[in-house]
């Protein structure tokens, strides 16, 4: 009954709407399938982990329940939140600096070809230097201070953002720049109104990469040159062979990075690039 009503209401077949509907149903099914797959994979890993841990000493591979107990104890400590905040603020400070400096330099290098050609070797060289080397230099220059960790995050993530923004400027449509010139737009306005929106997608993929790298190298910097933060705790745990502590911190970090990806980056991207998502067929 309802079915006949439904079809008679749309007596003109609307293939486009049907195609959209079909695609949506398909994508919901695909999502369910992929969630199921992920849960199965996680369960499989835990089972294998459990089986493996039964035959080796706890300091080599602690069992899942032991790690869970350690994690619950860890989270209830006030120092846990202090360490987390300290490390996160270092990552954010280094990343924010890198985002600003990398974007400005990338835009300038893309806007003026001569400057781009001139500075290109510097970018290539900085990209080849290992984060550990930056950490050692930072230790020599800044000692055991906030500057050390922030510097390492900055030196690792800045070139990534710069390279992406610079690449993004090469996608600027010269036709749009010419159009702006017919309206007698100033160079700074052209930069702001045409270059900046064009590089946004590239900036985002660079920023995502840079944040991930920053969050990883901050631990190296903290183990080498800091007396607080997650990296410092990890070194302590390693010195005392508290393998369950190392596992608990690792799980915390993985969860944190996933949260940033799905609760911060993806929603921002979805909002910023509405025009792009709709443009896709």
């Amino acid at each position: 009954m309802t079915r006949t009503n439904h079809t008679s209401a749309m007596h003109v077949p609307d293939p486009q709407r049907r195609a959209i509907q079909a695609r949506r149903t398909a994508s919901v099914a695909a999502l369910k399938q992929s969630i199921f797959n992920r849960v199965m994979l996680a369960a499989l890993v835990v089972v294998l982990w459990y089986l493996a841990s039964r035959n080796v000493p706890a300091f080599v591979l602690p069992s899942p329940e032991r790690v869970a107990a350690t994690w619950i104890r860890l989270v209830s400590l006030p120092s846990f939140w202090e360490d987390l905040t300290v490390t996160l603020s270092r990552v954010l400070a280094g990343f924010a600096l890198a985002a600003v400096v990398g974007s400005v330099l990338g835009l300038i290098m893309g806007f003026d070809r001569r400057i781009g050609d001139f500075l290109e070797p510097v970018v290539i060289v900085i990209n080849t230097v290992s984060s550990v080397i930056w950490a050692i230099f930072a230790l020599i220059w800044f000692g055991l201070s906030e500057g050390t960790t922030i510097f390492v995050v900055f030196m690792t993530s800045m070139p990534l953002i710069l390279t992406n923004v610079w690449k993004g400027t090469q996608q600027v449509d010269p036709g749009l720049v010419e159009l702006a010139r017919t309206f007698r737009m100033s160079r700074s306005k052209i930069l702001l109104k045409i270059y900046l929106p064009t590089i946004m997608p590239e900036f985002f993929s660079g920023a995502r990469l840079a944040f991930g790298f920053g969050a990883r190298v901050v631990l190296i910097a903290e183990t080498l040159g800091s007396t607080s933060g997650i990296g410092y705790r990890l070194r302590q745990a390693a010195d005392l062979v508290q393998t369950d502590q190392v596992f608990a911190w690792t799980i915390t970090l993985v969860a944190l990075m996933l949260t940033v990806e799905f609760a911060v980056l993806k929603p921002i991207e979805a909002r910023l690039f509405v025009w792009r998502r709709l443009a896709a067929p």
Binding site: L179, I194, W275
Partner: peptide, 22 residues
């Protein structure tokens, strides 16, 4: 121009306003 040269990230209204921003 031969092409419409609209800014793809702007709505029609904001494209129309582009020349006014100079």
């Amino acid at each position: 121009f031969q092409e419409d040269r609209l800014l793809p990230w702007r709505s029609a209204a904001r494209n129309v306003g582009f020349g006014l921003e100079a």
